[in-house]
């Protein structure tokens, strides 16, 4: 039996080592890891951080970066009520139609609408940003090796270029961005936003908050997933224990 467990464990190790390569970060720079409220198997999103992060997104990021797959109604998960969500949505105009005259028209966004993009299309976004396309952010945490740690590292990674490195006009030196040259100007400044809850808006704090918000945007079902996972695994442990006892009983007469 022990030998069997050993071989099975070996199989598990082989499987794990097989699985590893795909998940490794592509770039050579080590990304420092941060503590996240949503990390670990019991992790949940810190609601206050989500709301502060949303404020940073609205005030700082939203002028260039869309949030295409998030709908205003989803903000309910951040703790906003229906009227607040309606008001947030109504700040933006969306094109709807055609109306009875066959014309397209502008109307205020509704909670059922997805976040309105700052640019009508990618070409317009490039044209407004010197040829660089500001990525849509609703999947940014899932779409970058390193995830939340990487987003935080880039937001806080603006530095003066080391001597010998020349950064062309319109580019900025960033310690963690692949290739170290990023077209996005440093987005965060101390007290660039004023938090309603009195939290000091340092660059680190803003970066942390907006990253938490973006992690939520990437995977709004994270909390439900982890809760369901704990219940599933607890159930399976009990069930597998019973199955093992059953198997032992059935096999008791085999010699």
């Amino acid at each position: 039996m022990i030998a069997r467990i050993k071989t099975l464990a070996a199989a598990g190790l082989v499987a794990a080592s097989l699985a590893a390569p795909a998940a490794m970060a592509a770039e050579g720079v080590a990304i420092p890891s941060q503590e996240w409220s949503f990390g670990g198997i019991f992790g949940t999103f810190d609601r206050a951080a989500l709301q502060r992060g949303f404020q940073v997104y609205q005030n700082v990021c939203a002028s260039c970066h869309g949030l295409d797959y998030v709908a205003y109604r989803n903000l309910e998960q951040l703790g906003y009520n229906e009227d607040e969500i309606k008001a947030i949505a109504a700040e933006k105009q969306v094109t709807d139609g055609p109306n009875d005259e066959g014309e397209m028209f502008e109307r205020p966004a509704k909670p059922s609408d997805r976040f309105v993009s700052p640019f009508p299309n990618d070409a317009a976004a490039r044209a407004a940003n010197g040829g660089a396309l500001p990525p849509e952010l609703s999947l940014i945490v899932d779409a970058r090796a390193g995830g939340a740690d990487y987003i935080y590292a880039v937001l806080t990674g603006y530095q003066d270029a080391p001597s010998g490195v020349t950064v062309p006009d319109g580019m900025y030196y960033n310690a963690y961005f692949p290739g170290h040259q990023i077209a996005m100007p440093p987005p965060l400044f101390p007290d660039g936003v004023t938090y309603g809850d009195g939290t000091a808006a340092t660059i680190a704090q803003q970066a942390k908050d907006v990253t938490t918000f973006l992690a939520w945007a990437s995977e709004p079902n994270l909390e439900e997933r982890k809760r369901a996972g704990l219940m599933t695994i607890l159930f399976l442990l009990v069930f597998t224990g019973l199955l093992y006892a059953t198997k032992r009983k059935i096999w008791a007469d085999v010699h």
Partner: peptide, 22 residues
């Protein structure tokens, strides 16, 4: 019975990935 027990073990490992490292 033996396959069912093996399936249980498999599902525990599988669930760990699906729910915690999807």
């Amino acid at each position: 019975a033996k396959d069912a027990f093996g399936l249980g073990v498999y599902l525990i490992i599988f669930s760990a990935f699906v729910f915690f490292a999807p």
